[in-house]
Write a protein that binds this DNA or RNA. Structure first.
Length: 463
RNA sequence: GGAUAGGUGGCAGAGCGGUCAUGCGUGGGACUGCAGAUCCCAUUUAAUAGGGUUCAACUCCCUACCUAUCCUCCA
């Protein structure tokens, strides 16, 4: 498969190892506040990428960090007059809950920064000993001039940066570009003991210590939002490669585009963010996932209500047909396997994770299947179902209703009564029953004398 | 100012040097007791502006303009 690599600046073939584990690392969030759908975009994408690689025979170890010690967490704790861990634990729990709600379940391990303080101190220590870092009055800094490739991922000459920032050279920083890897404690701040006194880690080194602990000096895929390229990922490269002496940290660098609102990046500071919670109140995970995946992963998405509305229309079409086919197939049990259609669609996704192209082709298939649903053979039906199951296994965009033809329950009773009414042409009462059931979240479709139905998990509370 | 990615129909957004993108929305029709679902047709003489190359450009080249992200908070 091919994918756009930030460092190479072009689509390159992923020469991933078939025989061993793919080590994939994605930068997680800072647990300081509520999460917005910009976060969701990145994590949904990498969830689908991991799942796609797995169904194509790769063994993926997906590692993600969580930054649970940070200036902003401390600020928030001060504002609420609580311990910083009250804040970090609250939002870590919220983050896990949101990931579950969005059906993001491919991460093998979430690594908390505060669980890896020893590893962080070890890295700082080794960097200082090797002359890559130095201590100042307020912390320990990485010396950018010792790493010639600094800024390479960002794609800009580091000298440009030097010129632009000469104004904010701090008294004891040797170079304005140098970044902090250990911060000395100020009164009232949380701390850990270290060879440089009480303090806490800088941001960049949290990730490098975690990846080194689990993956060693190099790994295969590093992902994150586009806004992390510089300085964060360039700093990670500088730290890790200075320690390892290798000429690379990750084989591939994959960055997801931003989610914009009114053509501006969604962010805390602009106060234009829409939280995942808010969106989940009105839309299902399938609809959110479709909206976020239905774009080139590296371009910006402009968030709007109509984006979700369009997403809803597509998810409904897919889910309704899927459920009709499942009912028609009887005791259908999902089986892994492949066929020509899956192979073809798999090829589309394999070219730069083109979910958009995938969805386009699936929508075409949907038209064909809908038109021929009544005349489909058993084999054709099972093949169509396997395609949709395959699609759903890594995109998560189909609502699996509790499809039922069981007419023994109370719903069944009402439907039997309604059926009798309809045969007597007493439509007024029959329609009253139908609209009641619809408002209770039961999907109903009259097909001649028969009635197709299932419990619609989209729910009645959603818009 | 620098780096990167773009500027396509009501909206979202592909591909391609010459032939229908697709989806949503909208309008019409078919089916139905009516809904819904589904199908069919239409919305198609769309390409930021100005040059250039070419038999032919939305597609290649140049220039201008515009937008987004980053340039030590950020997914």
């Amino acid at each position: 498969m091919k994918i756009f690599d930030t460092l190479a600046r072009e689509k390159i073939t992923l020469g991933l190892p078939h025989d061993r584990m793919i080590k994939m690392y994605v930068c997680g969030p800072t647990v300081q506040d509520n999460f917005h759908i910009g976060h969701a975009r990145t994590y949904v994408f990498f969830d689908s990428l991991a799942k796609y690689l797995r169904i194509n025979g790769y063994r993926v170890f997906y590692l993600q960090n969580i930054t649970d010690i940070d200036d902003k967490i401390i600020d928030r704790a001060k504002a609420e007059n609580v311990d910083f861990q009250v804040i970090s634990r609250r939002y870590t729990a919220e983050f896990y809950a949101l990931m579950k709600a969005l059906k993001i379940d491919s991460v093998n391990l979430y690594a908390l920064a505060t669980d890896h303080i020893m590893e962080i101190i070890s890295q700082v220590k080794r960097l200082v000993e090797a002359g890559f870092a130095y201590e100042t009055g307020d912390g320990v800094y990485f010396s950018v001039s010792r790493f010639p490739d600094y800024g390479k991922l960002w794609g800009q000459d580091p000298q440009t940066l030097l010129a632009g920032t000469s104004a904010n050279l701090r008294e004891d920083k040797r170079d304005p570009r140098d970044f902090v890897i250990w911060k000395k404690m100020k009164p009232g701040e949380p701390y850990w003991d270290s060879p440089w006194g009480k303090g806490r880690p800088g941001w960049h080194i949290e990730d490098t210590a975690i990846t080194e602990a689990y993956f060693g000096p190099a790994y295969n895929i590093h992902g994150g939002g586009m806004d992390l390229i510089f300085p964060h990922h360039d700093a990670e490269i500088a730290i890790s490669r200075s320690l390892s002496g290798l000429d690379r940290l990750s084989d591939y660098w994959i960055h997801t585009g931003m989610v914009n609102v009114n053509l501006e990046k969604m962010s805390k500071s602009l106060k234009n963010f829409v939280t995942i919670r808010e969106v989940l109140a009105s839309y299902g995970s399938e609809e959110i996932r479709y909206a976020l995946l239905n774009a080139n992963f590296s371009t910006a998405i402009n968030y709007s209500e109509s984006l979700l509305q369009e997403s809803r229309a597509v998810v409904n079409q897919l889910s309704i047909l899927y459920n009709k086919m499942r009912i028609k197939a009887g005791h259908y049990v999902r089986k892994p396997g492949t066929n020509e259609t899956i192979e073809r669609l798999n090829g589309i996704v394999g070219d730069n994770m083109d979910f958009r192209g995938l969805f386009r082709d699936v929508m075409n298939l949907l038209g064909t299947w809908n038109a021929s649903l009544e005349s489909m053979s058993e084999a054709e039906l099972l093949e169509a179902l396997s395609v949709l199951d395959w699609l759903d296994s890594f995109t998560g965009i189909i609502r699996h209703e509790s499809a039922s033809t069981d007419i023994s329950g109370p719903v069944g009773l009402l439907l039997r009564i309604r059926s009798e009414l309809r045969s007597r042409r007493e439509f007024q009462l029959a329609d009253t029953i139908r609209s009641s059931l619809l408002s209770m979240g039961i999907y109903i479709e009259d097909r001649g004398a028969e009635t197709l139905w299932w419990i619609d998990t989209a729910g009645v509370d959603k818009k």
